[in-house]
Amino acid sequence: MLALRLARGSHPLVLLRRLCVAAAAAGTGFLLLSTVGHAAGHPAAADESLVRLLWCAAPLAATAQFAVSTARTDPAARPQRGMTAAGLGPLRLTLLATASTALTCLLGALLALVVFFRLRGDLGGSTGPSFGIGAGQLGAGHPLPLAGALMLLALVPLTAAVATAVSLRPRDEAGSPDAEPLPRTAPPSGLPWGIAVAAAGLAIEAYAGPAAASHDGLLPLPGRLVGSPPGVLGGWALSVAGLVLAGAGLVHLCGRLLCAGRPGALRLLSGRVLQEESHRLGRPLGVLCAVAAAGYAAAKFYDASPARPFGPLTAIGAAVVLACVTASALTAAVESRAARAHTTAALRRLGASASVLRRAAALRVLSLVVVMAPLTWTVAEMATLPLTR
C-alpha cells in the first residue's frame, strides 16, 4: 500500500518513467507469450519455439536494466531526512523500491496478457492480422497452457524485482556510489578486460566464419537460428560483452584525454566530471554501444538477405531493447547530474556562469561521441566481416 501511495504522489516525470518501464515490460511479456503461442500452434517445431524463447533473453535483460535505472533515480528510494525515524531505513527503502518495480512490471505484464488474448481471438472479435501479427503466429485455435504462460510471464516482474533488490541493496557508506566523502576518480579496471574479451570474440568469429558461409553466407536471426555455428554466436556475444565491460574505462579515458596537455578551465572541468562519473555512466553507455553494434550487424544481415524478412515480433524485440538501453543511458545521465548538484551549486557561487556549465556538458557529450561512435562502428564492422565474405 505504501508503494502505491508513493507512486500516486510522485512527480509527473517519475510517473512517466514508471509508465515507460510498464510499456517495456508489456513488450517483453508479449514476446514471451508469443513463444508459448507458437509452441502451442506448432508442436512439431519445438526447436524453433525454443530459439524464440532464447531470443527473449535480450529484451528481458534490457527491461530489467531499465527498471533498475528507474528505481535508482526514484526519489522515494533515496534516504531522506526523518525517514529512519519513521522506520524507513536503507533496507526498507530497498524493499519499497523492489515492490514498486514489481508492481510496475506486473501492470505491463497484465497489459501484454490482455493484448495477447485479444490478438489470438480468445476475447472475441476478429482474428485477422493486427500490426502485421497474424493470429496463426500466436497459436490461435489451439489450446494454450495457461499455467505455463502465466509462469513464463511472471519472469518479467520477477527478474526486474530481483535486479532492483540486488542493485539497491544497502552497502557500506564508503563503498556506496552515492557516498560524498571521496570522488571516485580511480580508473576503472574493466577496460583491458573488455578489450581482451572483444578481441577474443572477434577472433572466434573469424575462425567460425567459413562455417557460417555454408548457411547462405549469413547468420540466421530469430526464427532461423537452429543449426547455426555456435562459434559465430559465441564470438558475437563475446564481442558485445567486451563493449559492455569496457564502457566505464572508455568514459574515464575520455576524461583523461580532455585533461591531457595543458587544459583550460572548460576542458579540465569536463574531464574531471567524466572521470568521476565513469563508474556511474560507463555501464549504461557500454550497453548502448553494444546494442548499437549488434543492431548494425543485424540490419546489415537483413539487407543482404531478402529471404529473411524483418518480422513484426523481431521488430518488437528490437524496439524494446533499443528503447530500454537508450532510456537507461539517459536516466544514468540524469542520476549523474543529480549527484553533482552540490558541486554545480558551489561552482555557481564561485562565479561560473550557466553558459560555461552548458558548454562543459556539450564538451563531455562530444568527447564521448568522438571516442565511442568510431569504436562501436569498428567492432560492428569487424563482427560482420567474417560472416559476409
Rank of each mutant, 00 (worst) to 15 (best):
residue 149 A to W: 00
residue 130 S to Y: 04
residue 94 T to C: 13
residue 84 T to P: 00
residue 65 Q to W: 15
residue 79 P to R: 12
residue 112 A to P: 11
residue 41 G to Y: 07
residue 154 A to F: 03
residue 56 C to S: 11
residue 155 L to S: 05
residue 86 A to T: 01
residue 92 R to A: 10
residue 155 L to D: 00
residue 105 C to E: 00
residue 103 L to T: 11
residue 80 Q to E: 10
residue 91 L to H: 07
residue 140 A to C: 01
residue 49 S to W: 00
residue 71 A to C: 09
residue 124 G to S: 07
residue 99 A to I: 05
residue 129 P to G: 04
residue 135 A to E: 11
residue 102 A to S: 06
residue 66 F to A: 03
residue 113 L to V: 11
residue 142 H to G: 15
residue 144 L to C: 03
residue 127 T to A: 14
residue 71 A to E: 11
residue 70 T to F: 03
residue 59 P to L: 13
residue 130 S to A: 14
residue 103 L to S: 05
residue 150 L to R: 00
residue 151 M to H: 11
residue 107 L to R: 02
residue 117 F to A: 09
residue 78 R to T: 15
residue 67 A to D: 03
residue 153 L to W: 06
residue 150 L to M: 09
residue 155 L to I: 01
residue 57 A to F: 08
residue 64 A to P: 00
residue 85 A to N: 08
residue 105 C to P: 12
residue 150 L to G: 02
residue 123 L to E: 12
residue 156 V to L: 04
residue 126 S to I: 07
residue 65 Q to C: 09
residue 110 L to P: 14
residue 43 P to S: 00
residue 65 Q to D: 14
residue 78 R to P: 05
residue 124 G to V: 00
residue 119 L to F: 13
residue 91 L to T: 12
residue 148 G to M: 09
residue 42 H to L: 13
residue 42 H to C: 12
residue 72 R to K: 06
residue 144 L to A: 01
residue 108 G to A: 06
residue 133 I to F: 02
residue 94 T to M: 12
residue 138 L to I: 05
residue 125 G to C: 11
residue 92 R to V: 07
residue 73 T to L: 10
residue 73 T to H: 11
residue 115 V to N: 03
residue 132 G to Q: 03
residue 75 P to C: 06
residue 117 F to P: 15
residue 83 M to A: 06
residue 141 G to Y: 06
residue 143 P to C: 08
residue 148 G to I: 14
residue 140 A to G: 02
residue 91 L to N: 07
residue 73 T to V: 15
residue 115 V to D: 06
residue 144 L to K: 04
